[in-house]
Design a protein around this nucleic acid. Structure first.
Length: 414
RNA sequence: GUGACCGUAGCUCAGCUUGGUUAGAGCGCCUGGUUGUGGUCCAGGAGGUCGGGGGUUCGAAUCCCCUCGGUCACCCCA
C-alpha cells in the first residue's frame, strides 16, 4: 500500500457522494427558506479564537486541536468547530444587528477515529445573532429537526436542557462542586481534576454516571428569566410538533453555551457517537471575542453521522442519458446534441474518442444512465433511438423531443 | 492518551491451528462470442513486495519479536 488518506480522514466518491450532493442541496434550500444567507469563514483561524471562544479547559481545546505555526510564526489552528469563526466574522464585519447565517464545511479534531468520529468531518449549521427570545431558539431547533426528517431520520428526538445564565451558574457551580467534592473517592481521575475548573462537564461523563446520578442539575437552579425562557421553549416545541426529551444531564462540551442546549439523537442509531447534531444559545460569546454584547443561538449537524445513521439506501441516479455515437462522422453532431440536452437540464454524457458501439453501451451501463440515445443514420431524418437500459425497450423519436420525454419520465436535475 | 480485535489480488474473503512443490475463490476489470446494443450467458486474459522490518528454520502467508495501518470501544463530541 503506497500513499493513503491521513488517519481519520475519508475520501468521498460515487456512488456515496451522490447522497452528499442531494443533502447539501436540500440544506441550501431549507436554510434559504428560513432566511439564512450563506456565510463561509476560513478553515484555519488564530489559535486564540478557539482558546477564548470554545474555552481553555474544554477537551477540544486542551487536546484535540490541530495547531501549527505559519512561516511568520503566527499561531494558527484548523477549526475544531465553526461557530467561533462565524461569530468572529460577524464582529469583524461590524454590522452588529440581527444576522442569520448558514454554513457548510469541514472541521478538524485530533482524536482516535471510531464510528461517527473522524479527524476531518463535515458540519452544517446556522447561527442566529441578535435575537434573545426563545422563539429564535425554536426556529434554530426546528430547522435542524426538519432537515433530519428530510434525511430520512424520522425518529429523531431532540434532547434538551437549560444550563442557565452565567450569573445563575456561579452559584450553581459552587453548589455542584461542593456536592462532587464530598464524593471525590467515587469519581474518575478526569472528573476529580475538573471538579473546580469545570464541574458541569463531570455530569456528562459516562464513567461517572452512577456517582453523579443524584447530583443537582442546572435546570433546577435557573434564575427567573432563564427559567421563563426555558418554559417558553418547551411550550414552543410541543406546539411545533417537535419530538423532544428533557435531558437534565446534557451540558455539552463547549464553554460558550448558556441557557438552551440541545442534541439530536436518532434512537435507531446504535453507535457510541449517536448525536447527529446539537447546539444551543451563546449570549456571551460575541463579547468574549472582543465584540458587542449581542446574543446568539446556533446549531450544527454532523453530515457524516447523519448519512451513516440514515443507512445506505439505493444510490440516487446520477445520469439521465448516455449518447452512443454509431457513425464516427456524427461525433460533432452528438456533442451539439449533448449541449442542447444539458441546457434543458438533462444530465447526459458521451465517451471521448472513437470507441465501438458496444464499448459505448458498456460505458452507458457503467455510468448508470437511465437511457442510451443512439446517434446514427436515423439522425438524417431528425430521429434518434432511445433505449431504456433497465427494460431494454427501444424506440425511435425526433431528437427535439428527447429532453421533454426524459423530464416526463422523472429525469433531469431539479 | 488507554484497551480489544483485524491486515493475503482493485473489493470481499479462504489458506495460517499441524511451516514444504507454480498462493486460491467470488465480485470487478480487459478481450472475444455479437464491426448499430449494454446489463444477463459462455470462453479466454491481465492483476499479488501475503502491510513493513527483523528473528527462528534446510525452507515462513503460516511460528516469535518490533513497527505501521484499519476497525470498534473508553474518553469527548458533530
Amino acid at each position: 500500500m503506497s500513499l493513503r488518506a491521513p488517519k481519520g480522514t475519508d475520501d468521498l466518491l460515487p456512488p456515496e457522494s451522490r447522497r452528499w450532493r442531494t443533502l447539501l442541496r436540500s440544506w441550501d434550500v431549507l436554510t434559504e427558506l428560513y432566511g439564512y444567507e450563506l456565510v463561509a469563514t476560513p478553515v484555519f483561524e488564530s489559535t486564540e479564537l478557539f482558546a477564548r471562544g470554545v474555552g481553555e479547559t474544554t477537551e477540544v481545546v486542551e487536546k484535540q486541536m490541530y495547531n501549527f505555526l505559519d512561516k511568520a510564526g503566527r499561531r494558527l489552528t484548523l477549526r475544531p468547530e465553526i461557530t467561533a469563526g462565524v461569530v468572529r466574522a460577524y464582529i469583524q464585519a461590524g454590522r452588529w444587528g440581527e444576522f442569520k447565517g448558514a454554513y457548510s464545511g469541514p472541521a478538524f479534531r485530533y482524536e482516535r477515529p471510531q464510528e461517527g468520529r473522524r479527524r476531518q468531518f463535515w458540519q452544517l449549521g446556522v447561527e442566529y445573532m441578535g435575537a434573545p427570545d426563545a422563539e429564535a431558539d425554536l426556529e434554530v431547533i426546528e430547522i435542524g429537526y426538519r432537515f433530519l426528517l428530510e434525511c430520512g431520520l424520522g425518529d429523531v428526538v431532540v434532547h434538551i436542557n437549560s444550563i442557565g445564565d452565567p450569573s445563575d451558574r456561579a452559584a450553581y457551580h459552587r453548589l455542584l462542586a461542593d456536592w462532587l467534592e464530598e464524593r471525590m473517592d467515587l469519581l474518575s481521575a478526569d472528573a476529580r481534576r475538573r471538579v473546580r475548573s469545570n464541574p458541569l462537564r463531570v455530569l456528562d461523563s459516562k464513567a461517572d454516571r452512577e456517582a453523579t446520578a443524584e447530583a443537582p442539575g442546572p435546570i433546577d437552579h435557573l434564575g427567573e428569566s432563564a427559567a421563563a425562557h426555558h418554559e417558553q421553549l418547551i411550550e414552543g416545541l410541543t406546539e411545533r410538533g417537535i419530538a423532544y426529551e428533557p435531558d437534565p444531564r446534557l451540558v455539552r462540551g463547549l464553554d460558550y453555551y448558556n441557557r438552551t442546549v440541545f442534541e439530536y439523537i436518532p434512537p435507531s442509531y446504535g453507535a457510541a457517537q449517536n448525536a447527529v447534531g446539537g447546539g444551543g444559545r451563546y449570549d456571551g460569546l460575541a463579547r468574549i471575542l472582543g465584540g458587542p454584547d449581542v446574543p446568539g443561538v446556533g446549531l450544527s449537524l454532523g453530515l457524516d453521522r447523519i448519512l451513516t445513521a440514515a443507512g445506505t439506501g439505493p444510490p440516487a441516479r446520477a445520469m439521465d442519458a448516455f449518447l452512443v455515437v454509431a457513425d464516427q462522422e456524427r461525433r460533432s453532431m452528438a456533442h451539439a446534441f449533448a449541449r442542447r440536452l444539458r441546457l434543458a437540464g438533462i444530465r447526459c454524457d458521451l465517451v471521448t474518442g472513437r470507441r465501438s458501439v458496444k464499448a459505448q453501451f458498456k460505458a452507458a451501463n457503467r455510468r448508470d444512465a437511465a437511457v442510451a440515445v443512439v446517434i446514427g443514420r436515423e439522425w438524417d431524418e431528425g430521429l434518434v433511438t432511445v433505449k431504456d437500459l433497465s427494460s431494454g425497450d427501444e424506440r425511435c423519436m425526433p431528437a427535439g423531443e428527447v429532453a421533454g420525454w426524459l423530464v416526463g419520465n422523472g429525469g433531469g436535475v431539479r
